[in-house]
């Protein structure tokens, strides 16, 4: 169920979102919640032109471990794909999905999955501002 989960430097097109959703879908699941993390044009009032994501060589393995752990803890199906490389405003950086019998559990599992990915997967991003400056996020 988590085979689809990975990191990639290719564009996260609609087909990727569909693949993540299909990886968590099941006949008994009446709720599929999908989160898309999208590059925003602003950070704390400064205009952002794009983000450069960097992934550790183990990032895909860690992402799969996080998906497995969240799946085990919640008893639900979850999956996620994270992109790295240069992204422009509006580009999708993360697709994460969870399914459950009913919506509450699916929303909660998807939220937990995103929090855990942000905390545990070795990925970094550098913001490029319109004034030409840049800054690593989280330092």
């Amino acid at each position: 169920m988590t085979d689809v989960s990975t990191v990639t430097d290719t564009v996260l097109a609609e087909s990727v979102t569909r693949a993540v959703e299909e990886a968590v879908a099941a006949p008994e699941c009446g709720a599929v919640v999908t989160f898309r993390g999208v590059v925003r044009d602003d950070d704390g009032g400064r205009a952002v032109t794009g983000l450069d994501y960097e992934a550790h060589p183990d990032a895909a393995a860690v992402l799969r471990k996080v998906c497995q752990a969240v799946g085990t803890e919640t008893g639900l199906r979850v999956a996620a794909v994270h992109r790295y490389g240069h992204l422009e405003v509006g580009d999708v950086a993360l697709v994460a999905a969870a399914s459950a019998g009913h919506r509450k559990e699916a929303f909660e599992a998807c939220s937990l999955l995103v929090e855990r990915i942000k905390a545990e997967v070795p990925i970094w991003k550098k913001q490029q501002f319109t004034d030409g400056e840049s800054e690593w996020v989280g330092l």
Partner: peptide, 10 residues
């Protein structure tokens, strides 16, 4: 030894 800044995915 890997030197890892705070993660910032998502």
């Amino acid at each position: 030894v890997d030197v890892l800044p705070p993660f910032a995915g998502g």
